[in-house]
Design a binder for these strands. Structure first.
Lengths: 217, 217
DNA sequence: AAAGGAAGCGGAGAAGTCTCCGGTTAACGA
DNA sequence: TCGTTAACCGGAGACTTCTCCGCTTCCTTT
């Protein structure tokens, strides 16, 4: 909210594309610093766990000032999400263009189920970092790009089954149980297994995708 | 996690009851300090908003040291929840013993709907404080007593409609869209109205409570 | 090639949470 | 009433995140 720095959002991490008409390009030294910071952050997480991801330390390890880390990534949550994105850029392609049942080619209900199951696995894998990120900024999870992508994907599929419903809210609702704090609590304190969460989703989806849909019993 | 101080949980705020066999009673000065701290916190929130709720300031306003605030409430999230609880102790009674459709006397599906609608209103009212509390501690929301109560209440009602399902996970799933960060994002950035959230719940519940239940079309 | 200007850099410091532990005090039994 | 003890108090300080702003560096334009 109090960012007067648009740089962090200006160049999403990824391969450098030829710019057409957007904002002024990122300077070469800035781009190098971004890579250095991201590499340092990933190394710290890999070696000492997500909780050790401190901005001061990342800056020191990357050989830059702490101000530079903040200029490039905005806040700790954004840095954590950048590390996650770096790790799983390919996941996003899987449900957009990959083989069924995750990708196109299967029925909507089946794709929704496959997508949510895959997302459970992703949440399980990245739980530590997700927890750090969500805890640090109230809306980092939603402001960050991939949440919006997930929501749109789900909303599209839901719309094929329930065109009359509020697909945007329903997509949020289906994503909500994978908030890191709830999922982490279920797994660590509540003693729920991954399979149980997936089965829970199946029960929830049974109600949402069956009645009134094309495949009513 | 790193609490070796059990005091905060020992005496849930509320009227002092005669102790039967529990842990040693809270000392009189300690009880008075708790009241002072709670009153100071509530006053700060009322005057300058939930974001101004800082532990140092609460301590100063209450006339105690900051260590005392931490001894009594554990952390900032717990203090925020204590202020919330103080405000709406009566809400919990409403769905347990009040008149239908919230209280006993109505059908399970109807009670679930009434309960979630009421919870939307509560979330709307207390959004600022809930945001502060949830942001400060990963599992404060779930560790705090009322979440467990809500979950059990919902699980019981769900069990009447879908006895074969995982009622505990389903209860979590129905509560998840009311996480303060998601709800806050929908309301403040996403432009969703309160009515829209309630309608979304209705759509979600239609699938969950209708099929296989006693009222199949 | 040189200059001008915008973007970037760095680290001191503000602000906040939470811990630690020596000194104090309330509660209770004798 | 008085002594004992466990609970409690307070605030200095460790540790973080994040801001601010004077100085530096890169890019573009001439």
């Amino acid at each position: 909210m109090t960012h007067d720095d648009a740089t962090a959002a200006r160049r999403p991490p990824g391969p450098v594309l030829p710019v057409v008409g957007g904002p002024p390009a990122e300077r070469a030294d800035a781009a190098q610093n971004r890579r250095r910071i991201l590499a340092a952050a990933a190394a710290i997480v890999a070696e000492r766990g997500p909780d050790a991801l401190s901005m001061d330390e990342v800056a020191r390890a990357a050989g830059v000032g702490v101000g530079t880390v903040y200029r490039r990534f905005g806040d700790r949550a954004a840095l954590a999400y950048a590390v996650i994105d770096d790790r799983e850029a390919r996941f996003q392609a899987a449900f957009l263009t990959g083989p069924p049942p995750l990708g196109p080619g299967a029925g909507a209900a089946e794709r929704i189920r496959a997508f949510l199951h895959a997302l459970v696995d992703r949440t399980e894998d990245q739980l530590g970092l997700l927890l750090v990120a969500e805890m640090d900024s109230a809306d980092a999870r939603f402001a960050e790009g991939s949440y919006e992508l997930y929501r749109q994907h789900l909303a599209l599929l839901i719309g094929r089954i329930r065109p009359e419903g509020d697909v945007r809210w329903l997509a949020d609702a289906l994503l909500a149980p994978l908030a890191a704090n709830l999922y982490g609590y279920q797994r660590r304190t509540g003693g729920m297994s991954v399979a149980r969460v997936k089965a829970g989703y199946d029960a929830l989806l049974a109600g949402l995708t069956a009645p009134g849909g094309p495949a009513a019993p």
